[in-house]
């Protein structure tokens, strides 16, 4: 099978080309259009408990959809629910990626997905949530962002700072720490403001050009209070 990203930019969509009997998984509700040779099946990935955990703590849907070309070769178009770009990541059996809770769009069937804790403090302060998703296994993975996606390739020991709420995906080999953005202690610890993610290579880091939470606040400012 093959993934192809169409219309890269704000309203990107992916096209999956399947041979007969090939299948892949996508976020529930991601399917936009498909050939009639493809069957969609809702599945609780990993059983009830794992699905519940994903829903409750990962912000992901409990169900994933499996799209299978049962009646001959087919095509499926998939897109995330928010405006933004897509990136294609490759898993070679040895590497892992970590995704922020809304990052997953679709993956080939050899890709494994699990929800892991990054610790309460880091979770709340990083803006990426207490739980993040770890993807491993083998195959291609599509991640979605809010806004465009920028990729940084970090050399061993190379440092970078990314504002919280902007991380989309990062290699499992990247170390990250939460630090205060400035030396002063101006903002309250519980608001999560004023914290940034310090990343240390080696590995790739994908970040998004817009922060969904900030955008939400901006939109909310136009909604008249009742």
């Amino acid at each position: 099978m093959r993934f192809e990203i169409l219309y890269p930019g704000s309203y990107a969509m992916a096209k999956a080309t399947l041979a007969q009997d090939e299948q892949f998984r996508a976020e529930s509700g991601a399917m936009v259009a498909m050939t009639s040779t493809v069957d969609v099946e809702g599945k609780m990935e990993g059983g009830l408990w794992k699905a519940l955990k994903r829903k409750a703590v990962g912000g992901e849907s409990m169900f994933m959809q499996t799209l299978k070309a049962t009646r001959g070769p087919g095509e499926v178009f998939i897109a995330p629910s928010t405006p933004g770009d897509l990136a294609l990541l490759e898993l070679n059996g040895a590497n892992n990626y970590f995704l922020q809770k809304e990052g997953f769009l679709a993956a080939e069937s050899g890709v494994t997905l699990e929800t892991v804790s990054q610790g309460i403090f880091k979770g709340i302060m990083s803006g990426e949530g207490v739980f993040v998703q770890r993807v491993g296994g083998q195959g291609k993975l599509l991640v979605s962002s809010f806004g465009a996606i920028h990729k940084l390739a970090l050399a061993p020991g190379e440092n970078y700072v990314v504002d919280n709420g902007h991380l989309v995906a990062w290699s499992g080999t990247v170390t990250y720490e939460i630090k205060k953005a400035s030396s002063g202690w101006l903002s309250s610890a519980t608001s999560g403001e004023g914290f940034v993610c310090h990343l240390t290579g080696p590995g790739d880091v994908y970040f998004q050009t817009r922060n969904a939470a900030s955008f939400g606040q901006w939109v909310a400012s136009f909604i008249p209070a009742r």
Partner: peptide
Amino acid sequence: FAAEVFGPWAKGQSTAA
């Protein structure tokens, strides 16, 4: 052991080993 290797041939992207 299975490992990921970063070398001078690619920045950011590891090679399985």
